[in-house]
Simulated assay, not measured.
Amino acid sequence: MYEELYEDLPDVDRYWERLGLDRPKSPLTKDDLDRIIFAHQCSIPFENLDVCDYHRPISLGIPELFEKIVAGKRGGYCFELNALFDALLKDAGVETMPCLGRSLKDRGYVYPILHRGIIATLDGRRYIAEVGYGGPTPACAIPLVDGAEFESRGQVFRVELHDSCWWHVIYCGSAAKLAAAKEGGEAVEPAPVFALLDAPAALTDCVPLSYYCSTHPDSVFTQWRMVNRRTEDGNVSITKDRFVRVTAEGKETRIVETDAEFRTLLEAYFDIVLPD
């Protein structure tokens, strides 16, 4: 019944081709993992179109995820993207631990456990390997060291251990704004992003959680259209009907008014071509 959750990738080389990378040699280093995570975030968008626009069931079976995301050049949300990425890391010889987590964005209440993450071990050190969270998220492996602060692509993050088992990822702000604040500029308020429970999850645990995310009327995934991806110098996103493109030169924002415009943006900025 759940065997497909544990199957191998149908075509590993095609996955590496989707990422625009050569298949790395084992054992992977931290630099390798950073490079792969960044390429994944740039190549494969976070998106919930099957849930929000088409009301299609979400399969977490590896063959179905491969067909959708790699062969079909689509994206997905955490239960899809991190499941497929986990399989890729395992094929590359990386020790991984599937785990569960939650958003830490301030909604006035504690958000339920509705995130699927990965903790990877390289050379005895443990990292969060995240390619399935909508953002902001580091473009690199996240060291599981309490109090660790690091910069990734101009963004500064901190890791905190809470209650002996929850790893919190905190967005401290852009490196430029933090530097300006030190020189007497406007202070930057840190923003909690997500937390992972440091305990192994069975892949079957993800099935009911994904079903809630993809079907329940209270789920943000059924309410809001969300598409985003990292770019070499920023990011691009569509949330509800709002298109945002961030580059080194600045920020562009506009309202998406028609379905034709939405499809054009999807193809131009996310490489997604929807069927008629």
Results as ranks from 00 to 15, higher is better:
R107I: 14
D34E: 10
E64T: 04
L114E: 04
F85A: 05
W16T: 15
L209R: 10
D163K: 10
D198N: 00
Y127A: 02
Y211A: 14
I128Y: 04
C206W: 11
D241R: 02
P275H: 14
A179C: 12
E3A: 11
L84M: 05
Y127G: 12
L100E: 11
S152Q: 10
L266H: 10
F270I: 05
I142G: 07
Y77N: 00
R18T: 08
D241Y: 06
L104F: 08
R35M: 03
Y2W: 15
D205S: 09
A83D: 01
D22M: 08
A199T: 14
L196W: 09
R18W: 06
D276H: 10
L60Y: 05
K177L: 15
P217D: 02
F270V: 01
Q223V: 05
R35V: 03
G132H: 10
C42M: 03
G117D: 04
F46N: 02
E17T: 15
L178F: 06
D8Y: 07
G101W: 15
E149R: 12
V188S: 04
W166R: 08
I36C: 12
D146K: 05
I118H: 00
R229T: 11
C52G: 10
L178K: 11
S43A: 15
C165V: 13
F157H: 03
K30Q: 15
Y77Q: 05
Y269N: 00
V207Q: 00
C78F: 09
V220F: 06
G72C: 03
G147D: 13
A148D: 05
V220A: 11
L265T: 11
D205C: 03
T239W: 10
Y127H: 14
K30V: 15
K177P: 13
G135E: 12
Y77I: 05
L33W: 14
L9A: 02
K177H: 15
A260V: 06
